[in-house]
Design a binder for these strands. Structure first.
Length: 346
DNA sequence: CAATCGTGGCT
DNA sequence: TAGCCAAGATT
């Protein structure tokens, strides 16, 4: 057996990750440098920010502030201006503060290990590990949202993405994986897999370098990991709509200006557990047979609406519409009308 | 643990 | 379409 790389599951995962990174890793500007300062800047830019957003701003920022000293001798205002469009301006101010600390206490040099990096403003657990591993080859796991998702799936780990227990377990697993000759590449490989293959929605499992060992994939439910915040049970809102047709025209009613769907038009309606009964009372006649039933999701309610045939005269606030789908309808009313007519134009 | 901080893209 | 969320850190 090979002494350098024993034949464990960890070694297989490492090989798969490094191979993926070599062959399919993204070509990003900060991967073309070994300058710790540039790598630090890129990591801060990437905090809660999409790669596509950071890429076009990276070179410009470095051109303007090419080194720790250049950054430290700038004005804070200038740094924030160069940060424009990236958001979270506290990151720019912390970057600046950290650069000044490096000049004052470290002769303008970047701290060379994770622990020292971690003490600087704006450098948390993730960024410290990322810079230490990528720029200095330190064997430490950089656990970001991607890594949590990827390893939660590979090992079918329970818990929400923000749960400290899950993050701790992921970090322990990731730590085993980075314990090799190219820790920075393993960290970035995990992030690349997360960003391009093991996506939050619609993961591309057949193309995944870790697919052979992935428990979530074997279970057939990769998107179940990491767990999501339990959606609070949404109460059911029952609505009864009246379908009053006269020739080609349909009777619609405008909703009040406050509350749900303010000012929009819909079929004459009633709501509540006995919505149909209530609708009959409003119409002055019992509602007829059900023509359709549609479901609709709101943020805090699950709506079930039934459409009943009815005949009635126009009342205040109501209007006959020859082309009801042209009315400013609530999305639910539109859905209900389409369900009855089978017409999905417009 | 939860709120806050920004912007842009996606559904 | 309006809400959700992304290479997190800080309080």
């Amino acid at each position: 057996m090979n002494r350098r790389r024993n034949n464990t599951a960890v070694a297989k995962l490492q090989d798969a990750l490094l191979r993926f990174y070599r062959e399919q890793g993204r070509d990003l500007p900060w991967r073309r440098t070994r300058d710790p300062y540039a790598i630090w800047v890129s990591e801060v830019m990437l905090q809660q920010t999409r790669v596509e957003t950071a890429v076009p701003r990276f070179a410009g920022f470095l051109r303007r502030f090419p080194s720790v000293r250049a950054l430290a001798s700038a004005r804070e205002r200038a740094v924030c201006e160069a940060w424009a469009g990236l958001g979270y301006y506290r990151r720019a101010r912390n970057l600046y503060r950290a650069a000044r600390l490096m000049v004052q206490e470290l002769a303008g040099r970047m701290p060379g290990d994770e622990a020292a990096l971690r003490r600087l403003p704006g450098i948390g657990a993730y960024t410290a590990a990322a810079v230490a591993s990528i720029a200095f080859g330190e064997r430490t796991a950089a656990v970001d949202g991607n890594v949590v998702r990827v390893l939660a799936r590979v090992f079918a780990l329970p818990g929400r993405a923000s749960a400290p227990g899950l993050v701790r377990t992921v970090r322990a697993q990731a730590q085993l994986l980075v314990d090799c000759g190219q820790p920075g590449d393993v960290n970035q490989a995990l992030m690349d897999v997360g960003a391009t293959v093991c996506r939050r929605e619609a993961p591309l499992c057949p193309s995944c370098p870790l697919g052979r060992w992935c428990r979530a994939r074997r279970e057939g439910n990769p998107t179940a990991y990491p767990g999501r915040k339990a959606k609070l049970a949404r109460p059911i809102l029952r609505i009864a709509f009246a379908w009053c047709q006269r020739g080609p025209a349909l009777l619609l009613e405008r909703r009040p200006l406050e509350g749900l769907w303010p000012g929009l038009w819909e079929l004459p309606s009633a709501s509540g557990p006995r919505a149909k009964h209530e609708l009959g009372r409003r119409l002055g006649q019992a509602a007829g047979p059900r023509l359709a039933r549609v479901a609709h999701e709101l943020t805090h309610r699950h709506v079930v609406a039934s459409v009943y045939r009815a005949t009635t005269a126009r009342r205040p606030g109501q209007k006959w519409w020859r082309d009801p789908l042209a009315a400013p309808l609530s999305s639910l009313a539109r859905k209900a009308i389409v369900a009855v007519t089978g017409d999905s134009d417009r």
